[in-house]
Nucleic acid binder design. Structure first.
Length: 516
RNA sequence: GGCCCCGUCGUCUAGAGGCCUAGGACACUGGCCUUUCACGCCGGCAACACGGGUUCGAAUCCCGUCGGGGUCACCA
């Protein structure tokens, strides 16, 4: 039975790189009919773990990454919070000491630091002298009598080579002598991450440790503990990390300002902001950030699009398949086809995936996704029929659910929507287009039925009678009924609004430029 | 700096000795279509980091160089 795990730390947000790791773990488990476990790395968290965890769990759920054991559902190996497993870790520490694989150490941080610096001065690599290593209970008493406080350190081998077989990297070798005597238990008795990690993976029967590449260098100390404790060695797979847009540096939540200088990234934020502001979603830099998954959910991206994009960031099936449903991904995923080099986050490509997935949605589904945005923006009375008509006419102009708000002219009251000054100037005032508009208004008033084919014919007859080109009237008409110079197809626009609204709006537009 | 990882178009990638005058996608770009915007269609630009080997033949194997990144905590 394959068992993988994702172990987020309760930080209050779900990082896009972290999600990619979680996704790969999850896909691998699902592909092999195995289980995916969620464990919470909160060994150093003080309080508010639940609050800081909520956005993470919510993000995973939104993306469809579900877990078989962990927060909210428990499981046979509960608890799944490291903060609640301290006794397990202490027992492991005792066992390591008893077997001689770890020791109590009474050096102060200053003393360790001094040794480290001395080594650096000599340009040799630091190896702790073990000067304050306690080998017997008497040693402990002696050091403690001096007022020293003890930690527990790993007694790492000082010779030999570790050969690791990574499922993605292949064979990787490490010299044991380069490893430090890492601390595994603090003076206050609490245990550190690496120890906890090893104990939990054993307790939870994790078979495949799939994690980011940054953990590759800490693998030796973990393997050391696993072997010392007599645990079963899991298979390792170290994923390349997700890099900054246009760079190979690891993507970080903290560098928003830097990423904003990247045009594509800034565009992505801007597009999102237009929507977020309309629905009252906070857009402060910290909360509104494409590096955090919540960003996508808040403006109406499709989870399957994000998943599809993320899956291809480091993994590929072949030389042409790009579009995947989640089930497709599960069926085809394999660690063998994960690349080794870091993949940089490409905003435009993400956008393209969103577009493609969104256009494939049936109208019913688009309605379901777009309606809440209208509601949140204050258009509580927008009718289902009207929304559907706009959605249909908009076609791929709407790429994320929140984009429906760009077509608010269909949901605003006839006498209340704003006119774009420049468009008014350019298309209504200039060349006395308003004169044509007045004439056309009269024909419009007589139109019956008021549908797209009839309106097209009406326009055709009008331009023929006036001996003008269509574009001499069409722009003025658009601005008059929508206030904007861009929008849906003109005849769709007129038909959706209906005759009464069109006439009222034309009157109002003429009034705006002083013609009555 | 030590150790480790990585290095194909701007980006994501295909490529596991001849199928590669290196394929696809996004982006960019020329044109067509067109009532705006968008779409669509046709075309274009653009890469094997470098240097040595091995081989009849290398993007693919080996060595070196250079470049990028990660990691070196009583953080996770």
């Amino acid at each position: 039975m394959v068992r993988t795990r994702f172990a987020p730390s309760p930080t209050g947000y779900l990082h896009i790189g972290g999600v990619r790791t979680a996704l790969f773990c999850w896909l691998f488990a699902r592909k092999h009919g195995g289980q995916f476990i969620l464990r919470i790395d909160d060994t150093d968290q003080e309080r508010n773990v639940e609050a800081a965890l909520a956005p993470i769990l919510e993000g995973l759920k939104w993306l469809g990454i579900d877990w078989d054991e962990g927060p909210g559902i428990g499981g046979p190996h509960a608890p799944y919070y490291q903060s609640q497993r301290a006794d397990r870790y202490r027992a492991a520490v005792e066992k390591l000491i008893a077997s001689g694989h770890a020791y109590r150490d009474y050096a102060t941080t200053g003393e360790i630091q001094a040794e480290r610096e001395a080594a650096q001065a000599e340009k040799s690599s630091f190896v702790y002298s073990r000067r304050f290593m306690a080998e017997t209970p008497d040693d402990c008493k002696r050091f403690e009598a001096e007022g020293r406080q003890g930690v527990v350190r790993l007694k790492m081998p000082r010779e030999g080579v570790l050969v690791l077989n990574d499922l993605i990297r292949g064979e990787v070798q490490f010299d044991w002598a380069r490893e430090q005597d890492h601390v595994i238990q603090r003076t206050d008795g609490s245990c550190l991450y690496h120890l906890a990690n090893v104990v939990d993976d054993e307790d939870f029967e994790i078979t495949h440790v799939i994690r980011a590449e940054e953990h590759l260098s800490n693998t030796p100390r973990q393997v050391f503990m696993i072997q010392a404790l007599g645990y079963r060695l899991p298979q390792y797979a170290h994923l390349p990390f997700v890099a900054e847009p246009g760079s190979k540096t690891k993507l970080s939540k903290r560098k928003l300002d830097k990423y904003l200088k990247n045009k594509d990234f800034a565009d992505l934020v801007e597009r999102g902001r237009k929507i977020a502001e309309r629905i009252g979603h906070p857009t402060e830099a910290d909360a509104f950030n494409p590096v955090i998954v919540d960003f996508y959910e808040s403006v109406g991206y499709l989870p399957e699009a994000i998943v599809n994009y993320l899956a291809l960031l480091g993994w590929s099936l072949d030389d042409k398949t790009e579009h995947f449903t989640i089930q497709n991904l599960i069926d085809n995923f394999s660690l063998e086809r994960v690349g080794k080099s870091p993949a940089s986050f490409d905003c435009q490509k993400l956008w393209a995936f969103e577009d493609r997935h969104f256009q494939l949605l049936p109208l019913r589904k688009k309605l379901e996704l777009a309606a809440p945005f209208l509601r949140k923006a204050g258009f509580a009375n927008a009718s289902k029929e009207r929304i559907q008509a706009v959605l249909l006419a908009a076609g791929d102009r709407i790429k994320v659910a929140g984009d429906i708000l760009a077509f608010d002219e269909f949901f605003l009251r006839d006498g209340a929507f704003p006119y774009d000054e420049k468009s008014l100037e350019k298309h209504l005032k200039k060349d006395e287009a308003w004169e044509l508009l007045k004439k056309f208004r009269d024909r419009l008033a007589a139109a019956d039925p008021f549908d797209v084919p009839a309106l097209e014919k009406l326009m055709h007859d009008f331009t023929a009678a006036e001996n003008i080109k269509t574009n001499q009237i069409i722009h003025a008409l658009r601005v008059a009924v929508t206030g904007k110079s861009v929008g849906l197809g003109l005849f769709d626009t007129l038909a959706i609004l209906g005759k009464a609204a069109c006439l009222a709006r034309i009157e109002r537009a003429l009034g705006m430029i002083g013609i009555c």
